[in-house]
Amino acid sequence: MAVRVVVGVDGTEPGWRALAFAVEEARVRHAPLEIRHCWQAPREATAPSGTIMPIVSIGARPTTAAQRIAATAWERAVATLPTHHVQAELVEGPPGAALAEQVTPADILVVGARSTHRLTARWLGSTASRVLNQAPSAVIVVPPHTTTPEEQPFAGHVVLGVAPSAAAAAVLRFGFATARAHDWPLAAVHATTTNDIDSYIDERTLEVQLSPLPPEYGYLQRVLEHWHHANPSTPVRRAVFHGPPTTALARAAAGARLLVLGRTHRSALRRGIEPLAERLITRATCPVAVTPFA
């Protein structure tokens, strides 16, 4: 099934950042770009007396502002991509659910994060968090701000969060495809609490940052073997970072091009428990990709 890049825009700066990211993804993957702007018909308000008072009477038709946002997004996209590769549409409905319905498991859905403040993301919710829980496709969340500190070990890399789970294969597949498309180096990172030192091996130079190596390197070597041989031109580093997954992966992804994580099930969120992906989206300083459900 062919890959489509689908992006949600809303006329805000985070939405335009998501569009710019999606345009580049479509360009390097030679994929069509489909732009979606979600709009909702105005609701009616109930007066104290019980009578119905329409807020705005425009019927179930998109506003001029919605049409303008979609048109502007299309114009920005075709400045880089061929016009026949770009489509812009208005979709009626709440952004999270409406965007999730626009994609298939083979697609890539790109959205912007309005805020990475942890309490905002956790308690108030966002389009990004709703999409993460409903979309069947890979989802890339572009943060409001990105940093590229060159002194970090994986600056400019695609960083994969790799752990023994049903999602590992999807993380490796998406991560290597992205690194290959962009010609970026890749770092596969495993988080552990069994040692207190960050370390990595460069597969090309065999440069080792720690000796003796932690046992987790054996696991990384096994899961990477097939993908490394299938992508010989992609520089690969294996890394073991200490600490809980949230802090270890956020540290590893400092300055990265993209952080890739997996999803293992569709179960509803339990109160008080944040999925790893949502916790990292509030901390990471680079775009975060979450693979389709395993």
Score class of each variant (00 low, 15 high):
residue 92 E to C: 15
residue 78 V to Y: 08
residue 154 F to I: 00
residue 140 I to C: 07
residue 106 A to W: 12
residue 175 G to E: 05
residue 72 T to Q: 09
residue 113 A to Y: 06
residue 157 H to L: 00
residue 69 I to W: 03
residue 156 G to C: 08
residue 102 Q to D: 13
residue 122 R to G: 08
residue 93 G to V: 10
residue 169 A to M: 12
residue 163 A to N: 02
residue 121 A to V: 12
residue 82 P to Y: 05
residue 130 R to M: 03
residue 89 E to M: 12
residue 87 Q to V: 15
residue 150 E to C: 02
residue 135 A to G: 00
residue 140 I to H: 06
residue 139 V to I: 05
residue 55 I to S: 03
residue 128 A to L: 04
residue 67 Q to E: 15
residue 126 S to L: 03
residue 108 I to C: 02
residue 74 W to F: 15
residue 86 V to T: 14
residue 53 M to R: 10
residue 70 A to H: 05
residue 170 A to N: 03
residue 79 A to L: 06
residue 172 L to I: 01
residue 100 A to D: 09
residue 60 A to G: 03
residue 122 R to L: 13
residue 173 R to Q: 09
residue 149 P to K: 14
residue 158 V to W: 12
residue 119 L to I: 11
residue 107 D to E: 05
residue 164 P to W: 01
residue 66 A to E: 01
residue 87 Q to P: 05
residue 105 P to T: 07
residue 150 E to F: 07
residue 134 Q to G: 01
residue 88 A to K: 08
residue 116 T to V: 11
residue 127 T to R: 05
residue 86 V to W: 02
residue 156 G to L: 00
residue 128 A to T: 11
residue 73 A to Y: 10
residue 141 V to S: 03
residue 84 H to N: 14
residue 102 Q to Y: 09
residue 86 V to I: 12
residue 142 V to A: 09
residue 118 R to E: 10
